[in-house]
Nucleic acid binder design. Structure first.
Lengths: 316, 316
DNA sequence: ACACCTCCTGCTCATTTGAGCGATGACCCG
DNA sequence: CGGGTCATCGCTCAAATGAGCAGGAGGTGT
């Protein structure tokens, strides 16, 4: 990379040749004829131009997406898709909107008319649904029950309905909470026609969008909604992340929990059967949970922001 | 050039492929295998990456030389060599030093042991001589007589002697003024052994370095040294530039003058016979003279600064 | 539903390109 | 001056590449 091209005449000649080759798209043979050189000489000049740094090649997208980081993350974690949105902004609301839009673009790009779409409960999923443009007429399946938030403005049922409406496909949805007080109630709820019908579609789901939570206060809506004893119990079981209700440990293993029996939602096995699961996490604090989710192999697509991506890579 | 690559997944894929191709130097076949694509698809992705501006290729030298401008000037005026030094600085003294150094580098690059070097009188030539490193042992020939400047610190004789000493070759030099009061004296001087011997070498000179002056007050040492009647006479003859004593009009034609008979220096024909003549002009005011000199075909190499180069191109 | 239409994909063949090789020439040191 | 050393140059052959073409999928407008 040291500037070892030669004297100034050599530098100018090298630059001219490199310009013709890289910018004007001429072949080396043409250039050789034009400059009265052998094509080998031209090739060596071009090599020298690259080695010396005279020719600088940059890959940079002028949109919101950090392509280099995206590719790096995708490569590092063996993902089918990774979209890293470059936004300095770290307000949760704004972040969610940006990621939602990016995820919507990604989804509408990868979805085909033969897909069956699954949507889990998450604010980021709702944000995505809001930005989603026209989709082919595909079935949309609700993956989890609903969780009420203090300032509740979205819920998965809306998202499923909205997306199904936008696509013109069938909507498999149900009205039930994500968690219930006891396993019996959960079993009963699962027997309900709408729930059973919806969960019966799970094996056919080919693409899903989920959220990821870190099993800590304020980092998972499920955690925040759980009783203290469940919080502690799951922590003791080594739960690190919840992927829209599927619990995994820091090393990516699915964790069996009592809480799961009291939940109305997709299981780890069912999620693993889905060919492509896209997660939309945000906030650097969630890095350990996202790492766990990626290690688990349950998640094959990631839409997030630069800060979290860096956090993932720094200690990944 | 519009960003028409597709959705975010497409963008990331395109960027990954482009990175492998341009930065990692992989072949398209390798990339196709790695990504599970056809090599045609890879080629199209790479084309798209270039067209969309995702891949940006810049050619920029991190030294003093503006390679793009140099190439442009060289191309525009059909020169063998053009070196444009990028210096914001426009103090004549400093400019001369920079250009002198660049010209010295150029000369030491293009000179071969079989060359015969001619040096004209000019401050820039002296500046070059000062920066000139070791040269092969070649003969050095003085092309013109000397002109005394008010604050005289250099003269061509010194330059010739210095260069010859540095190269270890023979020095053909003489001590005579550039201009004398009458043609008879000039003829007599040309008969002098040293002068005759030196001028006898002119047909063998293969490379020469000269200065360029604009035939106006303060833009040519020859003009400044001339009598008012000569100044006017030459202006009426359409003289635009003097190339170390060779007068040319704005359209590049050599101009026959009375003054030439009273000068001890190289003629237009002799200069035209030299395969490579390098000029080292500076100062934007001289642009018309440099254009004339380039048009004349007498000068085939140019070493100058960005401002003058731009001035040349703006109205070239 | 049907035909059309456009875009996308992958093929073939001719050209371009890269890696390695021997020859030539310059340089260095005795 | 002469031998050794090194870099540079252009060639050969095989792989890589680009241009043009035909088939097919998906979308669209009656």
């Amino acid at each position: 990379m040291a500037d070892q091209v030669g004297g100034p005449a050599q530098v100018v000649l090298t630059a001219s040749v490199a310009r013709r080759y890289y910018l004007d798209g001429r072949s080396k043979v043409e250039i050789a004829e034009e400059f009265g050189l052998s094509r080998f000489k031209v090739a060596r000049l071009i090599d020298a131009a690259r080695d010396s740094g005279l020719v600088r090649i940059e890959i940079h997208h002028q949109g919101e997406i950090d392509v280099n980081l995206s590719a790096h993350v995708q490569d590092r974690f063996g993902l089918q898709h990774a979209i890293i949105v470059d936004t300095p902004d770290d307000h949760a609301e704004s972040l969610r909107q940006h990621l939602g839009r990016a995820a919507a673009e990604l989804l509408s790009e990868v979805i085909t008319p033969r897909d069956v779409l699954g949507l889990a409960w998450a604010r980021s999923v709702s944000a995505m649904a809001k930005s989603l443009p026209r989709l082919p007429g595909i079935p949309v399946v609700q993956l989890t029950g609903a969780l009420s938030l203090p300032n509740d403005d979205d819920c998965s049922v809306d998202a499923v309905r909205d997306v199904a409406r936008a696509s013109g496909g069938r909507a498999f949805l149900f009205y039930a909470p994500f968690t219930v007080p006891d396993a019996t109630t959960a079993r009963a709820l699962r027997q309900q026609p709408e729930v059973a019908r919806t969960f019966g579609q799970l094996p056919f789901v080919t693409k899903a969008v989920v959220g990821v939570g870190l099993w800590e206060c304020g980092q998972s809506t499920l955690y925040d909604a759980a009783e203290e004893c469940d919080r502690r119990a799951l922590r003791h079981l080594g739960v690190c992340a919840d992927i829209s209700g599927v619990f995994v440990s820091a090393d990516g293993e699915a964790v069996q929990t009592d809480l799961a029996e009291r939940m109305i939602g997709i299981t780890a096995e069912q999620m693993r059967a889905i060919p492509e699961v896209i997660a939309i996490p945000y906030g650097t604090a969630k890095a350990p949970a996202v790492r766990a989710a990626l290690r688990s192999g349950l998640v094959s697509g990631l839409v997030t922001h630069t800060a979290l991506a860096h956090a993932l890579l720094d200690n990944g």
